[in-house]
Design a protein around this nucleic acid. Sequence first.
DNA 1: AACGATTTCGGGACCGTTCCCGATAGAGAG
DNA 2: CTCTCTATCGGGAACGGTCCCGAAATCGTT
Lengths: 396, 396
Amino acid sequence: MIKCTKCNEVSGIARAGQVRGKQRYHCKHCNYYFTFQSPPPGKKSSPAHHATILDIAHKLKISKSTVSRALRNSADINQETRDAVLKMAQELNYVPNYFASSLVRRKSYSIGIVVPELITNFFSQFIIIAQKAASLAGYEVVICHSNESFSNEVDVLKRLFAYQVDGVLLSLSSETKSLDHLQVYSDAGVPVVLFNRVKNKPGFPTVLADDYHGAFIGTEHLVKNGYRNIGHIGGPGNLQISKNRFRGYRDALTKHGLEYNPNWTIYHDLSQADACKCAKTLLDKSSRPDAVFAVNDPAAIYLIIEAKKRGLHVGPDLGIVGFSNDSRSEVIEPSLTTLQQPIEQMAETCIHLLLNKIKDDRFAIPPTTVLKTTLIERCSSKKEGARGKEFKSLIV
Amino acid sequence: MIKCTKCNEVSGIARAGQVRGKQRYHCKHCNYYFTFQSPPPGKKSSPAHHATILDIAHKLKISKSTVSRALRNSADINQETRDAVLKMAQELNYVPNYFASSLVRRKSYSIGIVVPELITNFFSQFIIIAQKAASLAGYEVVICHSNESFSNEVDVLKRLFAYQVDGVLLSLSSETKSLDHLQVYSDAGVPVVLFNRVKNKPGFPTVLADDYHGAFIGTEHLVKNGYRNIGHIGGPGNLQISKNRFRGYRDALTKHGLEYNPNWTIYHDLSQADACKCAKTLLDKSSRPDAVFAVNDPAAIYLIIEAKKRGLHVGPDLGIVGFSNDSRSEVIEPSLTTLQQPIEQMAETCIHLLLNKIKDDRFAIPPTTVLKTTLIERCSSKKEGARGKEFKSLIV
DNA sequence: AACGATTTCGGGACCGTTCCCGATAGAGAG
DNA sequence: CTCTCTATCGGGAACGGTCCCGAAATCGTT
């Protein structure tokens, strides 16, 4: 039997809709509405009242405007008042409510970073540095990863948008073919900077390593070391980065009068499984290249492994150059010659450009920023005299 | 000359303090206060008015309460009304304001994850899985890293607290010696779950791999493979994880009647530089062990490298077992025998326990959850017949 | 002393939701 | 037709800040 929580009457109680699953009742003795939950839910988890600026104001008998001013260290405030407020805030363990502040200021003071994966160390390192730079400027960072899937990318971007991030740093998934899903961001005036895995489109500035030049000098390095039949493991065709690296590879061949053999170029989708498959495909060919420039280190690493399985001597029999200096590249045997991207510089540039744009909409981000890549020579690209020397060359 | 923006009078304008850097003036003709910014700041970055719940309400000539109900899919709402609202929301590109919602509901629907580093793949993998699990439950994840520094750890925890996270997943830095800095969290009733790098303290439940057992079977594996003089590279003494792994190592020796030689145990601080140094120190000893159980893979990897540099054959001359299955461990030569932690299970358990506690404060998280580790046998621990066979054993 | 300039403070309207409390119109019962 | 229920809606007070506007107090100058 249900009793009115106000007048304690049992009769005359009517059901009156429901809210959040709970039934509501109406007592017509005292004309009172109430909901009823069978077990009074125990010691209700008391929300541990955080101190607010009003608490400080009351204690100090001043207005909350003044407290706010003192806390934000703004002008128009007496030094003594400010000190008193600061002291009281300390005493009460005051923590500013980020949501209230963001709500009224219409800024979240956070930026989103979306990366396609987190398992190679390029992106983890990027994130570490970007986060440090952002937090120095007072910005929070929300990290998301698309897992190389376009639909995931769309999802996380939607979530970030609802999160009201002030800007986004984005590196595209291998499946992404257009930037249409970024429309909401440009409509809302939220700046987006693409990095590393980019796609050119007006309104979306990019920051990237000089993939063309890196591929060029990587391939040229193989030529100089005496390889003549140089193949290529490329990335997904829809990514700028794949195209640029391919162009660099091909132009290096051309420059040195070597013929480009399309039969020696195969493409992989940046997944690990496919990297293994590509290595096999390439080595299965009846006429195989004597060197390979790979679009990234994982592809090169699995090529080394596969070649060793088949008894080939990587270096003398098969020269290999990778791209991006994976953590495994210096410990694998032979160690992998690769191209080092300027991760730190890239991350800092991204944050710098993005924050400038956020702070002043009139700031114009340059459409593309290209950063230098450098060749790290190791053993996988040594045709002569490499055998037995591998140990010494490890960088430790 | 300054004109009143109201009555256009030039005389009788007095300065009247300043706000946010801008000078304020007072016109005594019309008794009006105003601020004056010299260059009207160009096309003011129009904040691109997001559609709100009120916009929807007005368009549909219903109240915002109803719109809110429709959007939250709650009861007390007519199906047609709900459809109309949903349609209009779509049309207006409505995105709910996360801050307003969190402000009034006093929940952020986000959790913080603090890890000591992001360069080994244990933590990156953990994060990937945890994030997926959390977002399935409608929770956002904020990722922070302490970079193995205690003061950084304190900082990021403070930031997360101000961010009003509903819960925290924390893996301690190598410098952390107590959990006192988590006091604010327990005071505020925000649950914290420690994982992997933990410290026992009432009120702070832990989730971790069975380090003791892993170390035990790892060491026992060396014994079974014929090694008799087994040394140890340990972790920082303040970490539970180091102690447990050390105990497992030592108990395995004892079980098999082998003597524990304190001279063969050295400690490193989990930094890369120190890993190199430890390898050198250990191999420099006049009487060196014939096998080493290392507290983690990086230490083992640098030991392999250093041993190879000195012409030792890892395996036959020096058996090595690591811990945590780093991505490098299967490509290094010889490949590294190591212990696989149940990353996925650990991440999911953490999220599961934390969210349960968040959703219902009465839920009691078990003080410790221990998950199984499994041995991955590779080549670095093969005393006999290992030479020349390395290639075959690579898992690809 | 009179007046203007400046510093410092208080009041209160917002920001966009959620949710509690009532109200109302039909449906169904008697 | 009257009465009771129920489904559905509206009004409005929070949530915890920020910031605009005006006022009061203080200071300096003639």
